[in-house]
Design a binder for these strands. Sequence first.
DNA 1: TACTATTTAATTTTT
DNA 2: TTAAATAGTA
Length: 720
Amino acid sequence: MDVTRILESLNDAQRQAVTAPAVPMLVIAGAGSGKTRVLVHRAAWLIDVEGLSPQSLLAVTFTNKAAAEMRGRIESLLGMPVNHLWIGTFHGLAHRLLRRHWREAGLPQNFQIIDSDDQLRLIKRLLKNLEIDDGRWVPREIQYFINAQKDEGLRPQHLDDEGDPSRRQMIALYKSYEEVCERGGLVDFAELLLRAHELWRDNAELLHHYRRRFRHLLVDEFQDTNAIQYAWLRLLAGNDGVPFVVGDDDQSIYRWRGARVEHIHQFQKDFPKTSIVKLEQNYRSTATILNAANAVIANNNSRMGKNLWTDGAEGESIKVYAAYNERDESDFVIGRLRDWIDQGNLRADAAVLYRSNAQSRVLEEGLINARIPYRVYGGLRFFERAEIKDALAYLRLISHRDDDSSFERIVNRPTRGIGARTVEIMRAYARANSCPMWRAAGAIASDALNGRAANAVLAFLNLIEKMARDVAGLDLQEQVDHVIYASGLVDFFKKEKGEKGETRVENLLELVSAAKSFEPDPAEEMSKLDEFLSHAALEAGEGQADAWEDCVQLMTMHSAKGLEFPLVFLTGMEDGLFPHQRSIADPSGLEEERRLCYVGITRAKQTLYVTYAEQRRLHGMDNFSQPSRFISEIPAAHIEEIRPRVQVSRPMRAPARSATSALPAAEMGVRLGQRVRHGKFGDGVILNCEGQGAHARVEVNFETAGTKWLVLSYANLDLM
DNA sequence: TACTATTTAATTTTT
DNA sequence: TTAAATAGTA
């Protein structure tokens, strides 16, 4: 029993949480306050000091990465492997339960998991089948609706159309979608959680078993739980369970996908004996950065309340750069990156963050020009690539003939003469006889089709059957290897011209090696192939398989959550971009944006740059914008303006429209992008100017009144 | 069936 | 601007 080892590196608050008695615990852990550390040490404490078996712990995270990290850290702290400790994502654990109890859950033994891309395709197909106009009923919106209901734990029969015909249609589509999934043995992400919840809810014995087994529940990123996840935890905890949840209400940035911070309050109601510990000491950032973050987040109303502090140095001030436009902004960032690298720092220690992905473009161009290696986070993941999904679809069809989703994906890929018309006939048959496409194909090939189409379909059916026979008994990586060639996929992509096809073939080969290094869980009863397929759906893999290279990190502020960097740039800090236009009107939306800003600021360890552009090209149009309101929420004392906003009346490179028009407006201190106020029209931004002296006119874009041309000498504009 | 023109819309993302 | 989806053409 090595208590010191577990406790020595902890501060008082952390230690209090780690050594807490067996009561429900709510740990409010600020950014950089050692949240994961507390979870890891708590697990070690329970096992090593309280003497609990690892089997009686359940640890839940949101990402596979977090789960893997937690397991690794627990093992290294304890100095032994903890194989029987259940650590995983909500989805991973739900999946495990459903595999184990598929019968009770009402699923076929070899049910398949579909990802959101599969889900969307399935919905599109469904609309076609039902002959519903996908212009009026947008597949994405239907997908969103279905997932939102499932996230709330609601089945179609729980929903009331409220007399709204469009809602009634949505509910009907939800119902049809469920039927299709049911028939094909398909389970989407939200369904995993919903089923797992219903499994326990409706099986007293099972629930009892798991309640007895898992008395201690450790939950990471608790503020991100959605309704069904919370309900699942609540159910498992019952009255005697001891949930230990860690989260930060100020870092809740996923409301739009169902996360509810309110669960932090709900938790205290559901578990009245809860003790609360706040972790406010920060080990990551300088005092300046923390003060800035505290000041910004203080503008939010609905908070638990928390103030980060450090006993470290004050650090350098936050640099704010007002760029002329997005190019200038990018040049500035790259200049600072150059300095950073020239001073011998690691490129990977620098991160450029932005609100939306599209903003990476300009930065990337600049970085390429400057020959600075960089890496953009958040592209397609390995298992999401089209060619990989094609290959997986073959494997899935081999394992599960009823999987229509896979069937449709590959029936004519590579092209084998089964065109849209033929597929249409199959669909009609399948629908009329409510049978899977596979059966429909067989039935139709023997009568309804003409010779050529029938042959093509028969050839496809035989191909799959033959592959299934050939692959039986082979080892997993041999199966994958066989399938990528026998399916014709490799040849198909080889023919694709350019580098693209080459990469795709490489990816297919990479899939074989992924299969080779795949280690199945010995406790699972599935076939290795089925387990691999589940793994592929549940863990999409890294974005880039790139080897370790020292690269500047580019990513959205969302994907930066949980990471830290010595040098951070927050770019595009303009009202309309960040906070984003679509969140600006709604107070709760604005608060979420502000939390995102808080997340962004607290990523920085030493140096933080904040940049914005006065003019930015958006959707091909030049827009003028004002600095993000969040910048003005940072106390001036912590800010150093890098380039005081000099009076530049025109862009250097954009030539003046005419020799006579450039000057006069500037004479009056008016310049493009200048904010002005008009007695009647209110506030606006100068877009354009022309004429001289008494005739000088400016075009102003007013926030409420729209765009107007005004004669300067009459308009009586106030500069702001 | 594959390629090309036209239209349309444009946060954030993990499982 | 541009990427993706759709419609139209060879």
